[in-house]
């Protein structure tokens, strides 16, 4: 809600800055829509349907969706060796890298986390917030360029910082909420903790390997440094930012706390 209010104030400041402000507003909206349209082509061809051979995964996801009280999402596998998972709308995407490092129970735990996001409508909210961010960035620059009133420029910059802070806080809270819901969907809630521990280990190790790697035997192949970055379905501008994701340790602590509360509520049914 706060994010929406900030966007509206920013838009009003542009619209109140004369004809150039109205034009700048139109440009901001246009560019944001172009970014929105462009991201839907991103990564085309790399998505694979799981097929009949992965019945355990599809059935497991359907069971979790039923427990969450939502329609079963569509599942795609992504041709990427970096372990990753995300959801957009009612679609869950798992990278093939996940299957190399996690057990079936742990993969279903990751799916449960994504179902948590879908249940909380994050699959729609996160992209919208990201596009709102594009609009905020553009309109702040435009307010400077159209020589808006002296009050508008610092106000716009303050709004941008506030938007960034609110966005980060919102996404962090949503991550915890998705974990909390996932715990209630799993037969063994600790499988989510195990999955996060392995993913944390993977991320730590891959950073170490890249930092301290011996020279490669094949010098012509340059490693793409950006590969570690988690892939998203929507565009994120690379400017200053507050951390949007809680650390794995924070999430693991949260899962353990939620599990303990749940254990107490269901009389130890989930002990394990």
């Amino acid at each position: 809600m706060l994010l929406l209010i900030l966007l509206v104030i920013q838009a009003l400041m542009l619209l109140l800055s004369g004809n150039w402000g109205i034009l700048a507003f139109a440009i901001s909206v246009g560019v944001t829509l172009l970014v929105f349209a462009g991201t839907f082509r991103y990564g085309e061809g790399r998505y694979i349907e799981p097929g009949d051979d992965m019945d355990w995964l599809v059935r497991g996801m359907e069971r979790e969706a039923e427990r969450a009280g939502i329609r079963a999402p569509k599942l795609y596998l992504l041709d990427d060796y970096i372990p990753n998972a995300y959801s957009v709308g009612n679609v869950v995407v798992l990278s093939l890298g996940l299957f190399e490092i996690l057990s079936r129970e742990e993969i279903l735990a990751v799916v449960a986390h994504e179902i948590g996001h879908i249940k909380n409508h994050d699959g729609m909210m996160f992209p919208l917030i990201a596009y709102g961010r594009v609009f905020m960035l553009l309109s702040t620059v435009e307010l400077v360029l159209v020589h808006a009133t002296p009050y508008f420029i610092p106000a716009s910059m303050a709004l941008l910082v506030l938007y960034e802070w609110s966005r980060a806080r919102f996404i962090r809270l949503r991550e915890f909420r998705a974990d909390g819901l996932a715990v209630t969907l799993l037969d063994d809630p600790m499988s989510l903790k195990d999955a996060l521990e392995e993913l944390e280990y993977y991320n730590d190790l891959i950073l170490k390997v890249r930092r301290h790697a011996l020279p490669g035997i094949e010098p012509s192949i340059k490693r793409r440094e950006g590969r570690i970055k988690m892939e998203k379905q929507y565009w994120i501008p690379f400017v200053f930012s507050f951390p949007t994701h809680p650390s794995y340790s924070e999430r693991i602590l949260n899962i353990m706390a939620v599990s303990q509360v749940r254990n107490a509520q269901v009389g130890g049914r989930y002990e394990g």
């Binding site: 051979d53 060796y81 093939l96 299957f99 490092i101 280990y201 190790l205 390997v209 790697a213």
Partner: peptide
């Protein structure tokens, strides 16, 4: 995780090649 990272590093070094296989256990590298 260690094995996965090292195998992909060997791919980057050009000693291994990675491909997708659709088999009995599902889709995998």
């Amino acid at each position: 995780s260690t094995v996965s990272i090292l195998m992909n590093r060997l791919c980057e070094r050009g000693l291994l090649a990675r491909s997708i296989e659709r088999g009995k256990g599902g889709i995998r590298y």
